[in-house]
Design a protein around this nucleic acid. Sequence first.
DNA 1: GGCTCGATTATTGTATGCAATTTTGTTGGA
DNA 2: TCCAACAAAATTGCATACAATAATCGAGCC
Lengths: 234, 234
Amino acid sequence: MAKKASDAGGGRAQAVHRALKRAILDQALSPGSKLPEDSIGERLGVSRTLVHQALVRLSEEGLVDLRPNRGATVARPTLEEGRNLFLTRMALERLVVETLSGKLTPEQIEALSAHIAAEETARTAHATSIRLAGEFHTMLAQMTNNTSLIRYVDELVARSSLILALYGRPHSSECAVSEHRDLLDKLIAGKTEEAAALMAHHLDSITTRALLPKEDSMNIKDVLASYAAAEGLA
Amino acid sequence: MAKKASDAGGGRAQAVHRALKRAILDQALSPGSKLPEDSIGERLGVSRTLVHQALVRLSEEGLVDLRPNRGATVARPTLEEGRNLFLTRMALERLVVETLSGKLTPEQIEALSAHIAAEETARTAHATSIRLAGEFHTMLAQMTNNTSLIRYVDELVARSSLILALYGRPHSSECAVSEHRDLLDKLIAGKTEEAAALMAHHLDSITTRALLPKEDSMNIKDVLASYAAAEGLA
DNA sequence: GGCTCGATTATTGTATGCAATTTTGTTGGA
DNA sequence: TCCAACAAAATTGCATACAATAATCGAGCC
């Protein structure tokens, strides 16, 4: 029997996982959305078993909140989780930078340059922009050939997208493309400390620049509080 | 209906996962062992479905090798994976130390001291010794209250146990207890850089001291090569 | 009229069964 | 004796079916 294209990498279980992950990161499913196994399975043409497995896996990756017997929803990380997450990213991506500094092959440099060019082109499209910015970081991680490092950076980058979707300002370019290019230059030159500092600054910028509470992300009690005050209620 | 004790934290799926993880880390299942779903399920009194889920999850954590249609085995990390893993640990545990330095509460200090005492007591029992040493690191991570950091350190510590089981020397105290106490002292004193340096040294020691190839960890081809030579075969 | 308790419905958690794939054992030939 | 092709067994991958749990609605009671 001919394989479907979406079955490409591994079994169908993995295909379901990828599909859902993609949908979440593209914000086709926005944070807080319910994820009923039945409807998803029906829509994707697979049994609930596989959907269930995918949801469990996504919850381990922090992209889905999974409460026992109460179903799954797209994760809604708190601001503090967001900040902690970027701290962890900083620690890991510093290692990425240290590992890569002065050791990039011409092919790798070419690939990274091309990617940055793509980022510059897609600057207007906000959703694509976030995705490409994330991919730059995962590309770097990939080049370390350190499997645990790769996995964790991948995961954190994915969750970062979710967090930026929740809390990021639409008009701030969260991941300044120029910083990507600067970083690449330092890496090529082998200036490890400067590159590490740049990476740290780059990620720190995101937390201070883009990661501020915005109104519709407040929880319901806070939202109602202002209305209550306006009406002279408790 | 009364719950069984092993159901304690979460559903039975999680119980299966914990049981297998424990078995692997205790070396009751040694690296390379086959893990057939139905025998495990039979032994644990659950269906293959749950065992399958647990195995997938363990493979994501790097404790199990899972090849499509070919079954699961206890993971057998290579030496290079081991070294990379400890590099990643260093990056993350440096963040742990930085976060905790000078901020430990009296209760936390007490808990850590008690644990170190337990380590000193159990110094002779090799298996327990490894487990306790690992727990010290996970305890520290736990105290950061950074969920991603906690999860990754937990995972890496678990895999480290596996690696030490494979490549560690029986007679070297892999995780010197005295280093744990020194580290705690620096953390209490708030000497961040010294604590970080100590942690780095501590983990680096493991890679250089304990993480050298030993004979029975060679792959089957290398092992057979010597026998082949002895018998005058290809 | 509002509230509590109970039945109904929806949704998840798990077991079982069938199909597909791989591995092992066997038979025939060179 | 060795190798190749084939058949049998074992094992995984997945779907379906059933059981358990939580959410929803409605009736009776205060």
